[in-house]
């Protein structure tokens, strides 16, 4: 069964690499902001899978902090993009 968990991690890594392409290539800043949010989301998912694999709960605060960071970071960055474009 733990093999399946490792497969999950593998799938998440592939997804992360695809998002990395968007992060590098995405023509606009907004695309990059979204890609970063997605990557952090996948890091949260990967941490949860890793916790199950290793049967180790010490990474629990990491999940909370990452979730908060992703949210506040994306919102702030999007606001700054809008401000820079002179839309406000």
């Amino acid at each position: 069964m733990t093999h399946l968990y490792s497969v999950t991690l593998g799938v998440l890594v592939v997804a992360g690499l695809l998002t990395l392409v968007r992060l590098v290539h995405g023509p606009r800043a907004l695309d990059r902001i979204m890609a970063l949010d997605v990557i952090v989301t996948m890091v949260i998912a990967g941490t949860a899978v890793g916790m199950t694999l290793r049967d180790d709960s010490t990474a629990l605060p990491v999940l909370v902090v990452l979730a908060l960071l992703a949210f506040i970071g994306s919102v702030t960055a999007a606001h700054l993009v809008e401000k820079r474009k002179g839309m406000r």
Binding site: L4, Y5, V7, T8, V11, L12, V14, A15, G16, L18, T19, V21, R22, M34, A35, V38, T41, M42, A45, V49, T52
Partner: peptide, 17 residues
């Protein structure tokens, strides 16, 4: 649940691309 979730994440990344 893990595998389904990972597949959705993968398909989401594909959509992102």
């Amino acid at each position: 649940l893990f595998l389904t979730g990972a597949c959705f994440c993968l398909l989401g990344a594909v959509g992102l691309l």
